[in-house]
């Protein structure tokens, strides 16, 4: 077993966890650079929440070496807890306390001096657009407001690393976008984010690195672009004004496929700039005039399907 180098926000090697004879995590390695957004992407039941629960000290792994914020998680969980904040899948707020009381509770538990705590709480409520609802019970909040309160409570302690377990699941598109903007602001301020999601769009938009978790194993890891390049399906589509152009171009690109009705030619390629430049140069050399050009790259949905054999948001049963 290799050791986890320090200096990373999160490093885990050989993470294993079973419930009964069901292996939930089956040898998972995770590395998250400081100040980045790392996304664990996977369908329901893939083990995402279990991974977050282990990395955030909530449950113990059966095996594996874990360092979070420079501390050995098994040896010094309290030190890890001082550096992290967790916002769970199911909003962990106290519904018998008002929004503001929930925030002040976090301030007390973080041992902030009373006045500093009050100031910080007021600022966060303002920033998360919860000031008007501060005196009300979270029971009366919308889903988006509850998640914002949940995250605001996490931020009272000013954590360096934040775990967000499916922060936008079940939210309407507008609330989702608000949440994304908040996450982007946090990273801009230097916070490390560990994000789990079953939404490809979310990982695509937010994450610096994405690990695809399926059946307790990481089946692929890289930036969104790297993942997309892993699989075939990218192509350049050329549209011509008249049939002559299509004929000429078809001879230039052997292996391409033509559609005489729509006057389009599909040229396979990985969608990188060099490939595109090569296509344009070949067209120039043959003096073909192109009416329109589109580059299609496989989206994460294609990647996910290719890697796991099922799509990300359906097939819940398959992955269990």
């Amino acid at each position: 077993m290799t050791t986890v180098p320090s200096g990373q926000a999160i490093g885990a090697r050989g993470l294993r966890k079973s419930y009964g004879d069901k292996k939930v995590l089956d040898g998972v390695d995770i590395t998250v650079a400081e100040g980045s957004i790392f996304s664990l992407l996977g369908p329901n039941g893939a083990g995402k929440t279990t991974a977050v629960q282990i990395l955030s000290t909530l449950i113990r792994a059966d095996a594996g070496e874990i360092r979070v914020a420079g501390h050995d998680l098994a040896r010094d969980p309290q030190a890890v807890r001082r550096a992290i904040g967790v916002t769970g899948q199911f909003s962990a707020v106290d519904s018998l306390l008002s929004g503001e009381e929930n925030m002040l509770l976090m301030s007390d538990l973080n041992h902030l001096p009373r006045r500093d705590g009050r100031r910080r709480v007021a600022a966060l409520l303002e920033r998360f657009e919860l000031a008007d609802a501060a005196k009300k019970s979270p029971v009366t909040y919308s889903g988006g407001m509850r998640r914002r309160l949940d995250l605001a409570m996490t931020l009272v302690g000013d954590p360096r690393i934040i775990f967000l377990d499916e922060p936008t699941t079940g939210l309407d598109p507008r609330s989702r976008r608000t949440m994304w903007e908040i996450i982007e602001e946090l990273v801009a301020a230097g916070t490390t984010i560990f994000l789990t999601t079953q939404y490809l769009e979310e990982a695509d938009r937010l994450a610096d690195r994405i690990a695809v978790l399926d059946g307790g194993r990481i089946v692929a890891e890289g930036s969104s672009d790297e993942l997309k390049r892993l699989i075939p399906g990218g192509h350049v589509r050329l549209t011509f004004a008249e049939l002559g152009g299509l004929d000429k171009a078809f001879t230039v690109f052997p292996g391409s496929s033509r559609d005489d009705e729509t006057l389009t030619l599909t040229v396979p390629g990985d969608g990188r700039v060099e490939t595109l430049r090569h296509v344009l140069a070949a067209l120039d050399a043959a003096a073909v005039t192109v009416d329109d050009l589109t580059v299609h790259r496989p989206d994460l949905d294609d990647v996910f399907f290719a890697l796991t054999g099922h799509s990300a948001t359906t097939d819940k049963e398959d992955s269990r």
Partner: peptide
């Protein structure tokens, strides 16, 4: 059941 206990468990308290 509230889930806030899970939050407490991940805090340095």
């Amino acid at each position: 059941k509230e889930g806030i206990i899970a939050r407490f468990r991940t805090m340095a308290i």
